[in-house]
């Protein structure tokens, strides 16, 4: 079972060096414990492009598909047997990156 853990922020690439150290150490532990799938930080929503090619004639729109004050600034994908384990990992992630996070299961 995989879970997406979204990091919620109103800024991008804003982690302090101390936060980055804590995140890296946490990531190493997640890998050692076998929960690691993928993680990454994202550039600001202002760099996004929305593409609609449903008609076969792609239309590009500058900006994110929905404008919000807070947005997805980064994410983890964890492998976990159930939500309790995912919540524990997410809680640690929130602590180490010093941001709120959201947990959502993959289908």
């Amino acid at each position: 079972m995989q879970y997406l853990v979204s990091v919620i922020d109103d800024k991008t690439n804003s982690a302090t060096p101390e936060e980055m150290d804590a995140i890296n150490a946490f990531n190493d532990r997640v890998k050692a414990e076998g929960h690691w799938v993928f993680a990454g930080g994202l550039a600001a929503p202002s760099t996004a492009t929305v593409i609609d090619n449903r008609s076969g004639d792609p239309v590009f729109t500058d900006g994110p598909f929905v404008e919000t004050k807070e947005y997805l600034a980064g994410f983890w994908v964890f492998e976990a047997p159930d939500l309790d384990v995912a919540l524990r990992l997410a809680a640690e992630g929130s602590k180490h990156c010093n941001r709120r996070v959201e947990v959502r299961p993959f289908l």
Binding site: P81, D82, L83, D84
Partner: peptide
């Protein structure tokens, strides 16, 4: 069901 909230008595620490 979707988030797989486990059907069990929590671990001793929880």
């Amino acid at each position: 069901k979707a988030a797989r909230i486990p059907y069990r008595v929590p671990s001793k620490q929880d």
